[in-house]
Computed example of a mutant assay.
Amino acid sequence: MTPDATVERPIEDLAPDWIGLKMEVEDEHGVTVGFRLGRYEKSTVDGRPVWRLFSDHPSWSVTVYGGTKLRWVPPPAPVSPTVPYPMQQPVPAAHPAPQAPQYPAGLPPAPVARSAQSWVTPPRQ
């Protein structure tokens, strides 16, 4: 990660909306690890807050303690309309748009004459 593209925040600020972000953290042995956050668990061991961070893929985890700094890459800015390849496809409408009538432009078709027999099952031929 490049220093100008990262944000450094304390582990205490970790929130569910960070899941999916690319991160770097130093473990308790001073080893820097980078991963995409898949999930996390927060607990307390001997009165000390502990976070277990799980990578998205491949599956592994790292344990860190309170006061640890997370470095992460903020999500990309929304794509502008001038970019030819948008990152997300538009969401289709929940209901289809109303369709235009199928008869020719101008007048609708003339009504069909009805009789008492036209409202019942047509006679067999």
Rank of each mutant, 00 (worst) to 15 (best):
R36V: 14
A94N: 05
V91K: 05
S43D: 09
S43G: 09
A116V: 12
E41F: 07
F54D: 00
V83K: 13
K42A: 10
P81F: 07
W60A: 14
V83Y: 11
P111I: 07
P92D: 07
V91H: 01
V83H: 15
G106K: 10
Y103C: 11
L107H: 10
P75F: 02
V112H: 08
T121M: 10
W18L: 14
E28W: 07
T68I: 05
D56P: 02
S55T: 14
V83C: 11
R114I: 07
Y65T: 14
V50H: 00
V91S: 05
W72K: 00
A100F: 06
P96G: 12
W60I: 11
P84S: 03
R48T: 14
G67M: 06
D46A: 15
P16F: 03
G106I: 13
A93C: 02
K42W: 02
L53M: 06
Q89C: 03
K42L: 13
L21C: 11
F54P: 01
M1I: 11
V7P: 00
L21Q: 12
G38M: 05
R71H: 09
K42R: 14
W51S: 02
W119R: 15
K42H: 14
S43W: 02
P76V: 05
P49N: 05
I19W: 00
S80V: 11
D17R: 02
P74H: 08
R52L: 04
P90I: 07
P81V: 11
Y85S: 05
H57V: 13
S55N: 14
T32Q: 09
P108V: 10
P96A: 10
R36G: 04
R114M: 13
T68W: 01
T6Y: 03
E28P: 01
L107G: 05
V83Q: 12
P49H: 00
T6P: 00
P108R: 15
P101L: 06
Q102Y: 04
Y40W: 07
Q102A: 15
L70T: 01
T68L: 01
P108C: 09
Q125S: 13
L70I: 15
M1L: 13
